[in-house]
């Protein structure tokens, strides 16, 4: 690995830490927020917004931009925090999350620069992504379309309706990421409605499948940057993650799904984040 690459990875890690801190801060508003599923997705969001996506915060409507859809719309705080870190939105305005009159709702709102489509009702992202991807193909555009799904979300039938459709249309400019943190609101996905063997399921639907440690930012970045992995097929990256990653006293706990941190908990979470970013020693 070159020094340049190491520096680049360090930079991504620094952004990821900043995003995590902002997520913790936003989730400490009086209404609370979806913490766990935002934190598990941070490496995916960071890799996309700081390396993979062709986007420009100064021109959020650039017709040549790549598209990212947060199908797991309840991770909006993760997306908002990333958009703030990337310069799409004003961090000061995001700090008003949860206050009356704020634009930042608990599920993404399209009026916010960088938010392509509103999501929140699960299972909508894949069909939307097909529409964007098909439009790009018909226009001869190089655009790639990324869509992030929760693993619990895969219990929605519309995901598989779209999965079948995308493969049938040969949309290799469509890349899905599954935030495979293993937990949904009340417990383990495998206890509630099993998803495994998840990779085989996607393969059987005609997708190219890869699995990575979703908290390893280099692995996530490399996989997403290299997509499509098979010509003529949509790609799905199964990112094995930890719900609540980065905040040890909530990580891996279904209760991290929605939290309302007290000031003391917020301070404790921030200290923990500074001590160690997940999966790798952080020195920022």
């Amino acid at each position: 690995m070159t020094v340049l690459t190491e520096n680049r990875t360090d930079l991504l890690r620094a952004h990821a830490l900043n995003i995590r801190e902002r997520i913790v801060d936003v989730c400490s508003n009086p209404e609370g927020g979806h913490l766990g599923g935002s934190l598990s997705l941070v490496e995916v969001l960071t890799a996309l917004y700081f390396d993979v996506l062709r986007i420009d915060p100064a021109h959020p409507d650039d017709p040549h931009r790549d598209i990212f859809l947060l199908s797991k719309g309840h991770a909006a705080i993760g997306l908002y925090s990333t958009l703030a870190e990337r310069g799409f939105v004003d961090p000061a305005e995001l700090a008003g999350y949860g206050t009356t009159g704020s634009r930042f709702m608990a599920h993404p709102v399209r009026s916010i620069p960088g938010v392509e489509m509103p999501t929140g009702s699960l299972g909508h992202g894949p069909a939307l992504a097909i529409g964007f991807a098909l439009a790009a193909k018909l226009s001869g555009s190089r655009r790639r379309v990324f869509v992030a799904l929760g693993d619990g979300e895969l219990q929605e039938g519309s995901v598989w309706e779209a999965a079948m459709g995308a493969a049938g249309l040969g949309l290799d400019n469509l890349i899905a990421v599954v935030d495979r943190n293993g937990l949904q609101l009340t417990g383990s996905t495998e206890d509630i409605c099993p998803l495994e063997p998840l990779g085989d399921r996607w393969r059987s639907f005609g997708w190219a499948v890869r699995e990575v440690d979703g908290q390893n930012i280099e692995a996530v970045r490399d996989a997403l940057a290299g997509a499509p992995w098979m010509p003529g097929r949509p790609s799905v990256l199964i990112a094995r993650t930890t719900k609540g990653a980065g905040v040890p006293f909530v990580a891996g706990n279904p209760k991290s799904h929605y939290v309302n941190f007290s000031e003391r908990q917020q301070a404790r979470a921030r200290i923990a984040l500074r001590r160690a970013a997940p999966g790798e020693a952080h020195h920022g």
Partner: peptide, 18 residues
């Protein structure tokens, strides 16, 4: 696209947004 009405409406929205 086959017999898939949810997919139909979502795809249409994505195309329209493009």
């Amino acid at each position: 696209i086959g017999i898939a009405e949810h997919n139909l409406m979502g795809m249409a929205a994505g195309l329209a947004a493009s």
